[in-house]
Simulated assay, not measured.
Amino acid sequence: MTRSPVKVLYIDDEENNLIAFKASFRRQYEIYTANSAAEGLKVLENLPIEVIIADQKMPQTTGVEFFKSITTTFPDPVRILLTGYTDISALADAINHGDIYRYITKPWNDLELHNSIKNAHDAYRSKIDLRNKIKELEKTNDELNRFIYSISHELRAPLVSVIGIVNLVKMEGLYHSSGEYWELIESCSSKLDYYIQKTLQYYKNNKNVTDKSEIDFKHLVNEIIELYAYSNKDTTFNININQAQKFIGDSFRIEVILGNLISNAIKYQKTSNKEKTVEISIEVNKFSAEILIKDNGLGILNEHLEKIFTQFFKSKNNQGSGLGLFIVKEALNKINGKISVSSDLDYGTTFKITIPNAT
């Protein structure tokens, strides 16, 4: 299939230059000319131009100024500047800001200009091809995410039934009637349910939609503790929440962040520790919520602190999915939040989080 000629727009206030350019290159390219920046803009609005060549020294608007003015509205065409005099500062500024691809001195050399147009068009095609590939990848990724979400959602229904049966067996006093089989079924089911929930969190967090609503941190924290501490009554929670200021934020992502961090603080306690404690402190002002979650649990090795937010990272003591803290970091990125961590194997781990207030 023969590719259509490259569409080139040449802007110059000197009519003789326009005629000479068209005569030299009309056989190789599809040429359009304009004698002012305003006329060139009209051409751009009506035709899919791929390469723009503009003279620098034009009345009213210079070539550099014209290129800067179309950077947002027409970002795709590749721009070449023709200049008959030396203006180093203007050229350097235009090149540094990406406003021009190349500059050529006048009078131009036909071969040099031809090669520049050809290279500029190659750059244009590469830009368009890359954008199309990105769109294809985004579409494929979205389809994959939706597939994973659908499968995970469908898996939860029979899994919840299995967990329900185990609970009925416990209620009827038959949990230990078959050796360790029921305990094994419960353990495997709970672990699978945990993985599925993390997968669903990951999918929902990847969506760009934000849900801005008023957050009551005291109510939210109490709900999360009730949800995650029901199976571990040994942990003491010291809660200090100061929220005199109204806070607006993404309720889903904030719940995911706090849920993962609080559940980890409960989960990774030392089995030998008789005084398991989790400290939760939240200070809300008109700009942000400053959150501190501190435990006296297992702690994290210093060499692991930079890795704990990476996907699927698991330390020797980590029996989780390796997704929890990764999801926390991704959720914070979505809402422009920040997180830092300090840890000591003797004293436990402290997470400090800052979440902007959208009021």
Score class of each variant (00 low, 15 high):
3 R>T: 05
11 I>V: 06
23 A>R: 05
33 T>V: 15
35 N>Y: 08
46 N>Y: 09
48 P>L: 07
51 V>K: 01
57 K>L: 04
65 E>R: 04
66 F>H: 02
72 T>M: 04
75 P>N: 09
79 R>T: 09
79 R>V: 03
79 R>D: 05
90 A>E: 15
92 A>F: 14
96 N>Q: 12
104 I>V: 15
104 I>E: 07
108 W>A: 04
124 Y>H: 07
133 K>R: 14
134 I>W: 12
135 K>E: 15
145 N>K: 14
146 R>C: 03
146 R>M: 06
147 F>Q: 01
153 H>S: 10
155 L>I: 01
158 P>L: 10
164 G>M: 08
165 I>F: 09
167 N>E: 15
171 M>R: 05
187 S>G: 07
187 S>R: 14
190 S>D: 15
190 S>M: 15
194 Y>G: 14
198 K>F: 03
199 T>S: 10
199 T>N: 08
207 K>D: 05
216 D>Y: 02
219 H>P: 00
224 I>C: 01
230 Y>K: 10
231 S>G: 06
231 S>D: 09
242 N>W: 06
254 I>E: 13
257 I>Q: 10
258 L>K: 10
258 L>N: 04
258 L>D: 07
262 I>P: 02
265 A>V: 11
266 I>W: 05
280 I>S: 02
283 E>Q: 10
287 F>E: 11
291 I>S: 05
291 I>T: 13
299 G>V: 02
302 N>G: 07
302 N>R: 08
312 F>K: 11
312 F>M: 09
316 K>T: 08
325 L>A: 09
328 V>S: 15
332 L>Q: 11
335 I>K: 09
336 N>H: 09
342 S>I: 06
344 D>W: 02
358 A>W: 12
